[in-house]
């Protein structure tokens, strides 16, 4: 099958280009990451991130035939019709909207900065008990769909609002984590957290485009989380 890969090495290339490869897959429905590993054997200079190869570490987010996803859990048959059969090329590009370091590796710095801005850690001023802080199963259930985020950046880098203002708009991933702590019955910094989200950019740049929802490899829904935060802000402000 044919694979077309975005290549850029800052030391040798003046500008990026797409390089074409031919890979023998014997018609197997490989994961995109397995195809990349075959490519890497052919051409060791190809750079990409990978770690767990089972969709839980979030290393190998990339743009696969136009859609962001994790290479390790995207089988060829799901990329686009005809890719697995070799009728159509597999096209791999780095995640859009972030600076490219090399080939499929992007500089995630600004993405992580936005994550840090939401103070992604439990805050509770009351003294800790000798055992765990009790939490009902119902309260715990509020964290489902939030805590599972793997920080792969597929969502934020598919969001136009994040493309235009990556330094001001927190992006869906960071906002999902913001709500993960707002929703935690053990966290008591709600007021402080909300007051930091009140400006016109941090949260309110979300226009409900929902690209984040359609690409999330873990099936999470950042748009809904953002809606919840907005409701909390509204309740607090009215």
């Amino acid at each position: 099958m044919k694979v077309s890969v975005y290549r850029y090495n800052p030391e040798t290339d003046r500008e990026p280009s797409m390089k074409e490869y031919e890979v023998e897959t014997n018609g197997k429905d490989l994961m995109v990451l397995e195809v990349l590993n075959l490519l890497k054997e052919q051409d060791p200079s190809l750079a990409f991130r990978r770690s767990c190869r089972e969709g839980v570490c979030g290393s190998d987010g990339m743009n696969i035939n136009g859609k962001n996803g994790l290479a390790c859990i995207t089988p060829l048959s799901e990329v686009a019709p005809g890719v697995k059969e070799g009728k159509k090329p597999l096209v791999l590009r780095p995640l859009p909207g972030l600076p490219v370091v090399r080939d499929l590796v992007v500089d995630m710095g600004v993405f992580y900065q936005q994550y840090e801005k939401v103070q992604p850690y439990l805050q509770n001023e009351s003294p800790a008990p000798a055992i765990e802080r009790l939490q009902t199963p119902e309260d715990r259930a509020k964290l489902d769909g939030l805590y599972e985020c793997i920080l792969c950046a597929c969502c934020s880098t598919s969001c136009p609002s994040f493309w235009w203002n990556p330094d001001k708009f927190l992006g869906p991933a960071a906002l999902l984590q913001s709500y993960r702590f707002l929703a935690d019955s053990r966290d008591d910094a709600t007021e402080q957290r909300l007051s930091r989200l009140d400006d016109p950019f941090s949260l309110f740049r979300c226009h409900g485009i929902m690209n984040c929802v359609s690409v999330c490899p873990k099936g999470l829904n950042p748009t809904r989380a953002i809606g919840h935060i907005r409701s909390m802000l509204l309740e607090r402000g009215v």
């Binding site: 439990l122 055992i131 939490q135």
Partner: peptide
Amino acid sequence: AVFELDHMGLPFSRTEEGRI
């Protein structure tokens, strides 16, 4: 060490009594 993890915010699943 495990209770510390809870205090740090680890989202453990819960029993009806609210325990881990």
